[in-house]
């Protein structure tokens, strides 16, 4: 399915980002194929979140280019990224807890009749579409009319993912989707990522949890001090090697990298 010759669905070339005198990213490359799950790892401050915010349109890169299906794009806002089928699930979930599940799923993109920038929301339609979409992803909630703040962490994460995929997303970027979850909920979210992959969606997964990375990813890349550090197909690497990358070590023996963690 993921032949190297296929055009990447999302590609970043030479991305740099400076915040004043601080260099967050320096010439970073990234490429993602349809239906591929790419793990992005790195220590705190390695630039993972900044890179993802650039890919999702929240930040603009200081330098470099982004290509969607081989076509250069310029994102001025998350809305531009949405239009190109790129969605992000934020670490802090970015849901409005005071609003209902179906409203969160369609927030900012409400179905209905539009007059001069205002939409008269089709609420019955929103409910039905939201329920169907949750069904498709096998996400079970009591009712789409529940307020999001009444849900467990895992359910909220599921709603955030449903929200990201409600509009035929081609790429979903997830920032630490399992970090705040109870252990029994982690598996459900990871299975959800696999289902997205089965639907041909490309997923970028930022995670500190090696279990997650090695459970769902096809490929893993490491950032270190804002630069590309290493990258490998999952079959060609090991947990200890990846952990070594996070700490900026390469070429050490497996045992040595392992020793450094413990």
């Amino acid at each position: 399915m993921n032949q190297p010759s296929a055009t990447p669905i999302l590609q970043a070339r030479g991305i740099s980002k400076y915040f004043g005198a601080v260099t967050a990213l320096e010439g970073v490359d990234l490429s993602l194929a349809p239906g591929e799950v790419l793990g992005v790892v790195g220590d705190n401050g390695a630039g993972k979140s900044t890179l993802m915010k650039i890919l999702s349109g929240l930040f603009r890169p200081s330098d470099g280019e982004i290509l969607v299906n081989g076509r250069p794009v310029h994102f001025h806002s998350p809305r531009d990224a949405h239009r190109n089928g790129i969605e992000m699930v934020y670490q802090d979930l970015a849901l409005a807890g005071n609003m209902r599940i179906f409203e969160n799923i369609f927030l900012g993109r409400e179905p209905g009749r539009t007059f001069g920038g205002l939409t008269l929301i089709d609420q019955a339609g929103s409910r039905r579409l939201a329920a169907e979409h949750l069904e498709r992803l096998q996400i079970h909630v009591k009712s789409v009319d529940q307020n999001v703040e009444e849900l467990s962490g895992g359910q909220q994460q599921a709603v955030a993912i449903a929200r990201a995929t409600a509009f035929a997303a081609k790429v979903v970027i997830m920032d630490e989707p399992t970090a705040a979850l109870a252990i029994k909920e982690v598996g459900k979210v990871l299975d959800l990522i696999r289902r997205l992959k089965d639907h041909g969606v490309g997923v970028i997964l930022i995670s500190h949890r090696m279990d997650d990375v090695f459970y769902v990813c096809d490929r893993v890349m490491a950032l270190f001090h804002g630069r590309n550090f290493a990258e490998a197909r999952l079959a060609d690497t090991s947990r200890n090697e990846v952990i070594g990358w996070i700490m900026g070590t390469k070429g050490h023996s497996t045992a040595l990298a392992h020793d450094k963690v413990i």
């Binding site: 998350p78 409005a96 807890g97 609003m99 927030l107």
Partner: peptide, 24 residues
Amino acid sequence: RKVSLGRHIFAVGGNPQAARVSGI
């Protein structure tokens, strides 16, 4: 209740960051 801008007012009050990344 019915108009997108009205719901967006609630969204901004509930979680401005969520509203922003939703393209509001």
